[in-house]
Design a protein around this nucleic acid. Structure first.
Length: 535
RNA sequence: GGGCCUGUAGCUCAGUCAGGUAGAGCGUCGGACUUUUAAUCCGAUGGUCGCGGGUUCGAACCCCGUCAGGCCCGCCA
């Protein structure tokens, strides 16, 4: 059974109605690590739906969280906002400084700024959650009731956090962070509590009262999270391993939510995604790849497959080079399989059966539209990479594929795939080994290994190329002919051609590539090869 | 210090919850086909299941210990 179905099954034992939740703090540029959070939740929800449950998927935007520091991508003017809530401060403009105009005219906030492109990507990936803005929820009083319980039972909650996380809370700790005189959550101490007011004093010497029913502040994270489970009614949540460790916020949360009068959701801890060879993703280290950037390279279903095929507790290394080719080709292979037929085989061992089911599940989750069966495009990533490099315009790519019978009509999916492919080829991610490269100098090492027959072929071929018209068809005919004239197999002629022109054992179809190049250059290379072997 | 996750074929991983002959894909090698789309098809290759003990008729799986890597215990998914 696929991991999403295992989770769905376990949810079904608990009841019919479920809310699967995810949440992210919009503190900076989103990256594909965040995509795992969202997609893990989305896929569980889909599996639960498939299992006949009544399920809703929500995405909580943690806009009530404060700005922690002036990040590298922010200008110095943000110093004044450290400690202020992300949903209540202006977004950065191109220079990284606050865009006051949009903030005042449209209410365009820091949180909006980073969230918008991510939501766009989500839409393309086929994720359509119900959005819950955390700051707005506080302001609308959604947290009021549970915040009251938390404040009333401050000592129980303190005990819970101290016991489970084995850390000592300061004497003046209180389960409510009021906004200070500068609308910040830092540098403020709670001095008293009479519902609904939490009295405070800040480091600027100001005092005031925060109404917990109006969102004039927020619950600290370890209480904020369980309170959300409570008022939203979350029954399942996927979260990163940082929250999942013993003593972490889930283990305190599951007890605190019960103090607040609700049941904890079913947890699912997932591992992180790293960029191959670069360690964990971190915006400050600059080794991130955003969902938008990833979507420019691969279609959304392949991005979904990346998450779907790995169980959540497995770390994923996202490889934007050759790994992408393997991943994309794996998708094509999966899409071409007939799982029902495979599973009908009575002789399968339990293991084989499980593997087929997992593959089928991964493909089902990869589709951007729930329930829609994936279509194989019959064109592998490799193949398309090749064609996209050798054919300058799209028409030629399609006619090549059509003449070989690989495709019929050009579907929007194919066009879309080709557009992304061209993007990838021109990006910094495109791997060197996929690049088509015609030598400039003979590869002496390979030429030295030529036997007598091969030398003769090379002589013939040079002459044939020189004589032929410079178009793909003529070139394509002259190469094998060079061997035929000697009663040798066409195969050996191609072997010679690859060695001489590309310094390789084998390679892509040569003729169309050569036709794109200058005849004189190719001839010069062949002649140089000839000279080297006759010495 | 306390805890969590991971360790299985060259690579990526299933299989561990319910113990019953070690399994996929990729790669590699071989063959077939071919005026060769790094293609496709067929076949083969490949593992002291990190290590040591225990329980059991039987352990990759359960228990104890141990090593290695990653992570958490001050809101980084």
């Amino acid at each position: 059974m696929h991991w999403t179905d295992v989770t769905a099954q376990s949810l079904s034992h608990k009841g019919k109605k479920h809310i699967v939740s995810t949440g992210i703090t919009p503190s900076g540029e989103f990256h594909i690590g965040h995509l795992r959070e969202i997609l893990t939740g989305d896929m569980i929800a889909r599996a639960a739906q498939d299992a006949g449950l009544d399920v809703e998927f929500v995405f909580i935007i943690d806009s009530a969280d404060p700005l922690r520091k002036v990040y590298d991508f922010l200008g110095p003017e943000y110093e004044q906002f450290v400690g202020n809530q992300l949903g209540a401060i202006p977004a950065p403009n191109e220079d990284g400084n606050p865009d006051w105009e949009r903030f005042e005219k449209e209410g365009w906030t820091y949180a909006n700024h980073f969230l918008e492109p991510f939501l766009k990507a989500l839409n393309e990936i086929g994720v359509k959650p119900r959005l819950i803005d955390n700051l707005e929820s506080y302001r609308n009083g959604r947290f009021a009731e549970l915040s009251k319980i938390a404040c009333d039972r401050a000592e129980d909650i303190r005990e819970c956090i101290e016991r489970i996380s084995s850390r000592e809370l300061p004497d003046d700790w209180f389960p409510w962070s009021p906004l200070n005189s500068k609308k910040g959550l830092d540098k403020v101490k709670v001095t008293g509590y009479e519902y609904p007011l939490v009295h405070w004093k800040d480091e600027y010497g100001e005092t005031g009262s925060s109404d917990i029913s109006k969102g004039e502040g927020k619950l600290p994270w370890r209480i904020d999270w369980p309170a959300k489970w409570g008022w939203i009614g979350v029954t399942c949540e996927a979260f990163g391993k940082d929250h999942g460790a013993a003593g972490g916020s889930y283990s305190t949360g599951r007890e605190i939510v019960q103090l607040l009068g609700h049941e904890p959701p079913q947890p699912l801890v997932y591992e992180w995604i790293s960029l191959k060879g670069q360690g964990a993703m971190s915006s400050s280290a600059g080794n991130t790849i955003g969902p938008i950037e990833a979507l420019e390279l691969v279609p959304p279903e392949i991005l979904r497959l990346l998450i779907a095929k790995s169980k959540p507790n497995k770390a994923i290394e996202f490889d934007t080079g050759m790994g992408l080719v393997t991943l994309a080709d794996e998708y094509e292979r999966l899409a071409a399989r007939d799982f029902d037929k495979e599973l009908a085989n009575e002789e399968l061992s339990r293991r084989q059966r499980v593997q087929i089911e997992d593959a089928a599940g991964a493909l089902r989750m990869a589709s951007t539209v729930a329930g829609e069966k994936a279509q194989a495009t019959a064109v592998t990533f490799r193949h398309l990479a090749l064609l996209a490099q050798t054919k300058k315009n799209d028409e030629d790519v399609w006619s090549s594929l059509q003449s070989s019978g690989a495709i019929g009509t050009v579907t929007p999916e194919l066009q879309d795939r080709l557009n992304r492919m061209r993007h990838w080829i021109h990006s910094r991610h495109f791997p060197a080994e996929m690049k088509i490269h015609i030598l400039e100098q003979p590869n002496l090492e390979m030429l030295r290994l030529f036997d007598e027959d091969e030398k003769k072929i090379l002589t013939n071929m040079t002459a044939a190329i020189e004589a032929c018209d410079w178009d793909a068809q003529s070139i394509g005919a002259s190469i094998p002919q060079a061997a035929r004239d000697l009663d040798l197999s066409p195969r050996s002629a191609f072997k010679v051609a690859y060695a001489a022109l590309m310094g390789a054992e084998k390679g892509p179809r040569l003729a169309p590539i050569l036709a794109e190049m200058e005849k004189q250059e190719i001839l010069a290379l062949l002649r140089a090869c000839l000279t080297s072997i006759t010495e």
